[in-house]
């Protein structure tokens, strides 16, 4: 469920990109730094979690799995 919701947010930001197969969404410039802000804001609102400046690191943003891990760690 969490995975599906995050996938929807990413697909809205990067239409036409096969998100599941990407491992360097940020490093490859598929999502720009200002898109990162939007994604993080959506995650905070949708899952009611706190995300901090320190969480905004490429390793947390480069793939769907990384974002799922980030959200799960905040939910727990």
């Amino acid at each position: 469920m969490i995975r599906k919701q995050i996938l929807e947010i990413l697909e809205e930001v990067c239409p036409g990109v096969d998100i599941e197969s990407q491992t360097a969404l940020f490093d490859d410039g598929i999502i720009a730094s200002f898109d990162v802000i939007h994604i993080m804001s959506e995650l905070m609102d949708v899952f009611n979690i706190e995300i901090d400046a320190d969480d905004i690191e490429p390793e947390n943003i480069n793939s769907l799995d990384a974002l799922v891990n980030l959200v799960e760690s905040r939910l727990s």
Binding site: I37, M44, D45, I51, D52, A53
Partner: peptide, 15 residues
């Protein structure tokens, strides 16, 4: 970035 920009963009009011 860490101490002004991100706290501002991620703040509730800005969202």
């Amino acid at each position: 970035e860490k101490y002004v920009y991100y706290p501002l963009v991620l703040s509730k009011k800005m969202r």
